[in-house]
């Protein structure tokens, strides 16, 4: 055992000495603070979390992704590149290690809310490194995309994606510089559930120039029964008291357009609620529905543009959020854009 190892090392040393080094090894410090040594470029990757797989597709590295989780694959039409046999577990908490091992990946990429310690332990014997990358963390967008570019030897495309993202983020910052910010109540798919600082949806509102009416909530000081930053339960009276200028309701959806009838039903339900229709915001018709899935494009920059356009139509008259969305879907994800991501019924209904 020892001797074979020694022989291997000697062979490697010799090979590198005469310039036959198989690949460049580089050490990364991942999102969990672990040091991971990887041989670049990555040719076969297993990726957990949809946002991360989207990044890989956006930088043209989807053919190097050999395995994804079932949660990512929830909408198969969105992922024509993958078949059921490419699934390596339900999500980041239940990886199927055998399936991973069978794919012989160079790296397994998993977000920090996954079981990365367990995965590292299980895959150690197979020499498969585990890298923690948290793609759902919108604040790390540029950092994450740059890292992906490096991993998959696609820095140009990564830069292009970052340019797309920063172009719109800069534009938003620029045009919103001296605006009198309006107040937004964002509601999750469930009624009377909103988001607070720490949530990507909160960041989307802020980036779009709005003020989250529940943005002052420090989730750590709240009773646990009210939920977390991603699902914070509110009292209807509180919504009225906080006087939002705009109500945005997230709609459960996928890459495919939500049918008009379904949007209409949701619309009827929300305008029937007293705290919406009875308040100035509802009476003034300032209620919007938005497809959950599409609003989250490219770290939610598309959603932020839409929020900005709704709040300050004059300043964003020349900006079409659907066009930005289309660009993300068609150029970066390589799929036809289906449109119809938002809905607004007639206020009198």
């Amino acid at each position: 055992m020892k001797i074979t190892q020694l022989a291997l090392w000697l062979g490697l040393a010799l090979a590198s000495a005469i310039g036959l080094a198989p690949a460049a090894a580089e050490t990364f410090t991942d999102d969990a603070g672990r040091k991971v040594e990887l041989e670049l470029p990555i040719k076969r990757a297993v990726i957990f979390n949809r946002y991360a797989v989207e990044f890989a597709r956006a930088i043209g590295a989807i053919d190097k992704v050999v395995g994804v989780d079932a949660s990512t694959m929830r909408d198969p039409t969105y992922w024509p590149q993958f078949k059921d046999s490419d699934i390596v577990g339900q999500g980041q908490t239940q990886p199927n290690y055998e399936a991973i091992v069978a794919l012989k990946p160079d790296v397994v990429i998993i977000p920090r809310n996954g079981v990365y310690e367990e995965a590292a332990r299980q895959l150690e014997a197979f020499g498969i490194p585990v890298l923690v990358v948290t793609a759902w963390d919108t604040l790390q967008h540029v950092e994450n995309v740059t890292l992906f570019g490096k991993l998959f030897d696609s820095t140009e495309k990564a830069d292009a994606l970052n340019a797309y993202y920063t172009r719109y983020m800069d534009l938003l910052a620029e045009r919103l510089k001296d605006v009198e910010r309006k107040k937004v109540y964002l509601e999750e798919v469930r009624d009377l559930v909103t988001v607070t600082p720490g949530s990507g949806w909160h960041d989307m509102i802020e980036a779009g120039g709005g003020i989250n009416v529940f943005g002052d909530i420090d989730i750590k000081k709240q009773p646990s029964s009210r939920g977390n930053e991603n699902s914070f339960t509110v009292d209807p009276e509180e919504i009225i008291a906080r006087k939002p200028d705009l109500v945005i309701k997230l709609q459960p959806g996928s890459y495919q357009t939500i049918p008009e009838a379904k949007f209409a039903d949701s619309w009827k339900a929300i305008v029937a609620r007293e705290e919406i229709s009875g308040a100035p915001v509802g009476a003034g018709g300032n209620v919007r529905l938005i497809n959950y899935y599409l609003a989250g494009g490219s770290s939610k920059v598309t959603g932020a543009l839409q929020v900005a356009k709704w709040l300050y139509p004059d300043r964003f008259a020349d900006i079409d959020p659907e066009a930005a969305m289309k660009e993300w879907i068609e150029i970066y994800q390589g799929l036809p854009f289906q449109g119809g991501m938002t809905y607004q019924g007639s206020a009198s209904n």
Binding site: T93, Q94, N113, S224, S225, G227
Partner: peptide, 27 residues
């Protein structure tokens, strides 16, 4: 369940992992 409400995303995943017994990843 109450603890899960105040958990961060990372903690939540680990707590949920516990409430469903699993032999996945046993060493």
């Amino acid at each position: 369940a109450a603890v899960q409400f105040v958990a961060t995303q990372e903690q939540l995943a680990r707590v949920v992992h516990w409430t469903f017994g699993s032999l996945n990843g046993i060493g």
